[in-house]
Design a binder for these strands. Structure first.
Length: 369
RNA sequence: UCCUGAGUAGCUCAAUGGCAGAGCAUUCGGCUGUUAACCGAAGGGUUGUAGGUUCGAGUCCUACCUCAGGAGCCA
């Protein structure tokens, strides 16, 4: 359509266009009308028509916000001395275990796996370049059917040499604050279309609350005594989803839970020198029940300790030889975290499910379209 | 893998064990300052699949399939 735009108080937008010419580019047959109505529809139907669902105002708005989040997620690091070093997507071994990987044949005799994290590789580039990050798709073959899980999702992973947990916490809170600010700067209109309460985002500014595992445990015991959560948290156990939801709901900005028991954490996490049963790690829990959006830690820098950790976890030493080399030839303190883009988009947009945060979500039961 | 719930018209949903319906969409007619319009009419069904109980099953029973979101695990 072409024509002249004029102001008109009767129009909701304040403007009307007087059409002077109209050309039909394509006529959709009446018998097969456009399948998506601006009415309520079921999840299965909408996902089956994801390629057309994208044309609705709300879905378009979400993808515009996602694009800004992805740009901001890279820009912050680019502007702060980090070098982008993307790790391989095809990997020879698991990062932390082998149970949840997508496996494929790699030519004649070998197996390859789709990466579930680039972390081990960015440790290598960090020890070469200082401050680095990676940003790309990752894959988990977990049979998780929840509003927070995709089998294919995008992760951004910074890694810093000569830095430890305190620096990592600062990085995380400044990083998230920057991303939220960028979205608020550019997408108030889109957030309105999405129906997001932006007052919840305006307060997302560093510093973020810090909560030790011990203090978090105490809060959960207290909450259970008051009947606010069903199951009693046992000291020394990991937090369950309901625990994390409760904890995050006690704060109006992301809460950084640190120093979990090393017993149930990954083999590469550095023990706390003040209490070696704890790991120098952090989970950042988003507000409003959106769960863990960042997980990170200081890494084991010592060769012998790392080697014994690998053995304790029953992992094949041969596969980690190169990773051990990083400790053999000039090892220094280093740390990093991984942030799941889709969970951040879901949180910032206030969505019910991460499947709306990515153009074509891959989930346990769907790989079409 | 486990738990819970749901499968009825293109979509969203009704229907005490007793004639399978409504709104939206589609078609036709009317109306209209509309923007998820409004008024009238029409067409549209193997009630997820396979068995079973019953005079009679969308409804009750069994198995299976599909989907949902929760647990576990994770970002």
């Amino acid at each position: 359509m072409t024509g002249k735009v004029r102001a008109d108080v009767r129009a909701p937008s304040g403007f009307e266009m007087d059409v002077e010419a109209l050309e039909v580019l394509q006529r959709v047959p009446d018998e097969t009308p456009f399948p998506i109505q601006l009415k309520e529809a079921g999840v299965d139907f909408l996902m089956e028509h994801r390629h057309l669902w994208l044309r609705t105002p709300r879905q378009s708005a979400i993808l515009r916000v996602r694009a800004t989040i992805m740009r901001a997620a890279a820009q912050y690091f680019d502007d702060n001395g980090f070098v982008r070093t993307d790790p391989p997507i095809l990997t020879p071994n698991a990062c932390e275990g082998t149970s949840e990987l997508f496996e494929m044949d790699y030519f004649d005799d070998d197996k390859a796996y789709l990466t579930q994290s680039g972390q081990l590789y960015v440790e290598a580039t960090a020890l070469a370049l200082g401050k680095v990050y990676s940003f790309g798709p990752t894959f988990r073959a977990e049979k998780s059917k929840t509003r927070r899980h995709l089998t294919e999702f995008w992760m951004v992973e910074p890694e810093m040499a000569f830095a430890g947990l305190p620096e990592l916490l600062e990085l995380a809170e400044n990083y998230l604050s920057f991303i939220v600010a960028e979205v608020l700067k550019k997408h108030l209109g889109d957030l309105k279309v999405i129906g997001r309460d932006v007052t919840k985002l305006e307060g997302i500014q560093a510093p973020f609350p810090r909560l030790s595992y011990e203090d978090a445990h105490a809060m959960l015991v207290d909450a259970h005594a008051k009947g606010l959560i069903e199951t009693l948290h046992k000291d020394g156990d990991d937090f369950g989803s309901p625990d994390e939801t409760y904890l995050s709901n006690q704060f109006d900005r992301p809460v950084m839970v640190h120093r979990y028991p090393a017993a149930f954490k990954a083999f590469y996490m550095q023990p706390d020198p003040e209490d070696p049963t704890k790991a120098l790690c952090v989970d950042v829990l988003a507000p409003e029940g959106y769960g863990e959006i960042i997980g990170g830690s200081e890494r084991v820098a010592d060769y012998d300790l790392l080697k014994s950790r690998i053995e304790e976890h029953g992992l094949p030493l041969a596969a980690f030889q190169w990773y051990l080399d990083l400790r053999k030839y000039g090892s220094v303190q280093h740390c990093g975290f991984g942030m799941g883009i889709e969970r951040v988009v879901a949180w910032i947009c206030g969505l019910d499910h991460v499947r709306e945060t990515i153009p074509f979500a891959r989930t346990l039961n769907r790989i079409y379209p």
